[in-house]
Design a protein around this nucleic acid. Structure first.
Length: 425
RNA sequence: GUGGCUGUAGCUCAGUUGGCAGAGCACCAGGUUGUGGUCCUGGGAGUCGCGGGUUCGAGCCCCGUCAGCCACCCCA
């Protein structure tokens, strides 16, 4: 045999035994999105590299060291999208979804993202997200609608042990003030910080807050909280978000150390964690990004949205032993005793499929026993048996594989009888 | 990018002091020349991740390398 080739590191096949779960999650996602009146958008998985530099941020780790970037044959630098928002914003601007003052657009997407990282539990180089983006409304009601949609999605999937954490960094001005205050607080303690955080003090000081290193946690204890630096407007916004969540009965916890990895976030931030996920326990997160559209060349338009990892959701569901609702058409298995019977079944299976029944037969001439074993393994509902005696009399025997009961009827009557036979199965 | 652990049949794994490559499950066939999910019998299946070294002899020891997993980092 020739040398075998594996999938690239961190890239996974979704095999038939689990792809049905993906279909269920995607169906639930689409249903929930429709209930909240978000419509689907599909954007390319490749964008010009500059989009992510300007959108996600020059200082973020995701952009500086985790992108799949390559030069195409025309010399253009392209990047596989590491997240969903930047591409959606680009598409919304380019296609004039938010061109007019007061424009509102609510979209959702389901698709893959790519980040060049070391794989571990809940972290792949290609992962899939369900996400939504709402443009045009700056009010806290829009933040909360997104959060509710996200929580609704999880509860319809059956995940338990959820925690919603929220925080606010305020508008650009508040965020800058807070950043400066934090740097001022931490600089004298620089030596007590981890090596990573000493670097972050220059590049991205806010991230020191959610470091897992005990040295950093000690050093940041007593640091000035973000809300002390919020403008009156930002403070009012965040308070209103909390009030709306409480009124909607959505449990949440304010985590003043919650920071997220993209530069574009302003005002509200949130993250949802679930049990059973291991170290990478964030199921999804989001926030408001009121300056992003303008930064990417659009008319100034507020926006808010979230992204939610589907692999992580599946891990959590698995760990929590949640059964997803499996919906599949009942399978009819056509067993043939002889080559002549198989010929007749080739005609029959065509008619059955045309009539909308899911059917299978084995053309390889194996024994009836082997065919029944197959039918059982494929979880067929009925086995339609054509032996030489049935063939001679133009009949067919139907065996219910659950009860074991079987009856013989005229072949011509099969299509009429099937609904009744399946209803009893 | 850093660290720890693990690589043996399709899957889960055993393999003693270095001495013939194994089990269970799965698969195929037969028992039952027309009937599955139980049972019995038999069968196919392996470059022991890869490369080198030590040795009469390596799955086992040594060096290197690749891959997977988990954690750091980062985040979904």
């Amino acid at each position: 045999m020739a040398q075998k080739i594996n999938a690239p590191r961190g890239f996974e096949d979704i095999l038939p035994d689990v792809s049905w779960k993906w279909q269920v999650l995607e169906r639930i996602a689409r249903e929930v999105a429709e209930l909240y009146h978000f419509r689907e958008i599909r954007t390319p998985i490749v964008e010009y590299t500059d989009l992510f530099h300007r959108g996600v941020g020059e200082t973020t780790d995701i952009v500086t060291k985790e992108t799949f970037t390559f030069t195409d044959r025309g010399g253009e630098s392209l990047t596989l999208r590491p997240e969903g928002t930047a591409g959606v914003v680009r598409a919304a601007i380019e296609n004039n979804l938010i061109a007019l003052e007061g424009s509102r657009a609510k979209v959702f997407y389901i698709g893959p993202n790519f980040r060049y990282e070391r794989p571990q539990k809940g972290r792949l180089r290609q992962h899939h997200q369900f996400g939504v983006e709402a443009f045009g409304i700056a009010e806290p009601e829009q933040d909360v609608e997104c959060i509710q949609l996200q929580m609704d999605f999880y509860s319809r999937c059956g995940v338990k042990d959820l925690e919603l954490q929220v925080n606010s960094l305020g508008d650009a001005e508040s965020k800058r003030r807070y950043r400066d205050a934090l740097v001022a607080f931490l600089t004298p303690k620089r030596d007590q910080l981890s090596e990573d955080s000493q670097r972050r003090l220059e590049t991205n000081p806010l991230r020191i807050l959610d470091s897992k290193d005990p040295r950093d946690q000690q050093a940041t204890a007593g640091a000035p909280p973000a809300y002390e630096h919020l403008s009156d407007r930002s403070k009012a916004h965040f308070e209103r978000v909390q009030a709306l969540l409480s009124r909607a009965g959505v449990p949440f916890r304010v985590n003043p150390n919650l920071v997220r990895g993209f530069d574009y976030y302003t005002e509200t931030l949130w993250e949802v964690t679930a049990g059973g996920l291991g170290s990478q326990n964030a199921l999804g997160g989001g926030g408001r990004y009121d300056n992003l559209v303008e930064q990417l060349g659009g008319r100034p338009t507020p926006g808010v949205g979230f992204g939610s990892g589907l692999e992580r959701l599946l891990i959590a569901l698995e760990a929590q032993q949640v059964q997803l609702p499996r919906t599949a058409k009942p399978l009819l298995y056509l067993a043939s005793q002889s080559p002549a019977a198989r010929e007749a079944n080739l005609d029959l299976i065509r008619q059955l499929r045309q009539a909308g029944y899911a059917c299978e037969l084995d053309p390889s001439g194996r024994s009836m026993k082997a065919q029944f074993k197959q039918a059982d393994r494929e979880k067929a509902t009925l086995c339609l048996i054509t032996g030489d005696s049935e063939l001679a009399e133009q009949k067919i025997t139907i065996k219910n594989l659950t009860t074991g009961e079987q009856t013989t009827i005229d072949r011509a009557r099969l299509l009429d009888e099937l609904p009744r036979l399946l209803a009893g199965a």
